[in-house]
């Protein structure tokens, strides 16, 4: 499936710091966890074990879907620092 091959399909220059910060306290009690199935890069994965949403920013396509499907305002959302993040070759 596409998210498993993302780093082969898409070129990134990954910044050492995340450009999106998830406030896990705000996430607690979210009924839909829409970020886990709406994100086109599967950056958000719900961990049954830990009972929380794990977020990895590295494969982010910078589309903004998570910002708009989250109705609790759990995200401090920014684009990556200039020159970092996804770099489309042709698309």
């Amino acid at each position: 499936m596409i998210p498993d091959e993302l780093f082969d399909l898409v070129s990134y220059r990954i910044h050492p710091e995340a450009h999106i910060i998830v406030d896990q306290k705000v996430c607690e009690g979210c009924s839909h966890r829409a970020c886990t199935y709406s994100c086109p890069a599967r950056c958000y994965v719900y961990s049954e074990e830990r009972g929380k949403v794990d977020f990895a920013y590295e494969a982010c396509l910078e589309c903004g879907t998570c910002l708009l499907v989250c109705d609790r305002g759990a995200l401090d959302w920014h684009y990556p620092v200039g020159g970092y993040g996804v770099r489309f070759r042709l698309t």
Binding site: I2, L9, C63, T91
Partner: peptide, 9 residues
């Protein structure tokens, strides 16, 4: 062959 994937709002 799929060579690139992208997404946008």
């Amino acid at each position: 062959r799929m060579v690139e994937y992208s997404a946008h709002l």
